[in-house]
Design a protein around this nucleic acid. Structure first.
Length: 386
DNA sequence: AATTGTGTTGAA
DNA sequence: TCAACACAATTG
């Protein structure tokens, strides 16, 4: 897809158009609104519209949310925007976004992946043989719908796309033409063979999960001793936490928020943990284990064993299929081996053995994406409070 | 408590 | 297919 910034600029300024809180009575904007900057007006438009109750002059919240002018984009109650696409009578949720445009672009990506190049899109569709578009088309083809949706929801699509360009030896300006389909795959293979061979992992620790670890609390308590030994948090990060990326045996990367809860004086995996529990069908008593590769990248791994006190439900869990690490995919007309490449570790253990945000390559990128996100969220809050 | 994203419905 | 709307489920 084409995330050209020109699109951004062009449309963020015209956001107010769609809102027009239509009351037939005089819709004098509240004084507070009048003093707002154009920017904040714009944001307001994206959120709950505020109108004046003509009867008593009291500010009243209109429950009506502003429609988006973009296909596949729906307003969220908090002023953000959701993106969705339909397939087979079912909605596929593509995530929420601060920018209406961003949501629209997410829809476009999904549309191209789900419906092909001639899908109706909000912005310029991908065109074959258009230098840089080819790369993205190939990128879309080489990922499942689920993977693409996942990237969109995590807001990492653009980043993954850029990575794949590097991986395949492409540059933004299409340095490597595809021609006969013989792409310089050497870096691709080198990278991944490396990874496959890097099987030396050191066991860090294991934990038998408690009922509350797999319950509705959506968190895993990391025993303090292990947490402090293997996942030390820097002071600044204790409350906010950091993001940990752990790869499972299938090569799937799980991202968890890891932080310290003052209230319970414990280290916990929070966001992302419930998904893991759900997908792996973890039951109380099962063993989760954490490993780290001994090679330079210090990739973290997570695995689990169902407890042997197998009741019928845990048997299901042991059926977990290990998908082969390497699979064939067809890319640019050639069959190539594909191994999971989502190697993102936002956290790194520094020389002092402390866990900190890494600042190189993909890691930094994602970090910045996240920072950017949270920053913009804050902006919204402030603007809304005006 | 705030936000996400699902359940549902009616219109296109 | 699609978006509007309400609100339950999830997250922080």
């Amino acid at each position: 897809m084409e995330g050209s910034s020109s699109i951004d600029q062009e449309s963020t300024t015209s956001n107010t158009l769609s809102i027009a809180p239509a009351t037939s009575s005089s819709t004098t904007l509240p004084a507070t609104t009048m003093t707002k900057s154009p920017e904040s007006l714009c944001r307001m438009g994206s959120g709950t519209s505020v109108i004046i109750d003509a009867e008593n002059g009291v500010e009243a919240e209109s429950r009506k949310l502003p429609s988006s002018r973009y296909k596949g984009v729906v307003p969220q109650p908090n002023g953000r925007w959701g993106a969705q696409i339909y397939e087979k009578h079912q909605r596929v949720w593509l995530g929420t976004f601060n920018d209406e445009n961003e949501a629209a672009r997410a829809y476009d990506v999904a549309a191209q992946r789900f419906r092909g190049h001639d899908a109706v899109t909000n912005f310029k569709p991908l065109r074959e043989n258009q230098e840089s578009d080819d790369v993205e088309i190939a990128f879309l083809k080489s990922h499942s719908k689920e993977e693409i949706v996942d990237m969109l929801r995590k807001h990492t699509y653009m980043y993954e796309l850029e990575q794949s360009k590097k991986l395949y030896g492409f540059t933004k300006d299409g340095m490597l033409k595809r021609k006969d389909g013989l792409i310089s795959m050497s870096s691709f293979f080198a990278n991944n063979i490396d990874k496959v061979n890097n099987k030396e992992r050191e066991q860090l620790f294991e934990k038998a999960v408690t009922p509350s670890d797999v319950g509705k609390l959506n968190r895993l308590v990391i025993p303090k001793q292990h947490a402090e030994k293997h996942f030390p948090l820097q002071n600044g990060n204790t409350s906010k936490g950091v993001l940990l990326n752990l790869e499972d045996l299938n090569g799937k990367v799980w991202r968890f928020r890891y932080s310290y809860w003052n209230s319970s004086q414990s280290y916990v995996l929070t966001k992302g943990w419930s998904r893991f529990v759900k997908e792996k069908n973890l039951k109380a008593g099962d063993i989760v284990s954490f490993q780290r590769s001994t090679s330079g990248d210090k990739q973290l791994y997570i695995d689990f064993k169902a407890s042997n006190v197998a009741d019928t439900s845990t048997v299901v869990a042991t059926n977990q299929v290990q998908i082969p690490q390497v699979q064939m995919v067809r890319l640019f007309g050639v069959n190539i081996c594909k191994v999971p490449t989502t190697v993102s570790n936002i956290v790194v253990i520094d020389n002092n053995n402390n866990m900190t945000s890494c600042n190189e390559g993909k890691r930094r990128m994602e970090m910045e994406l996240l920072r950017f996100e949270s920053c913009r969220k804050k902006q919204r809050v402030i603007i809304d409070a005006l």
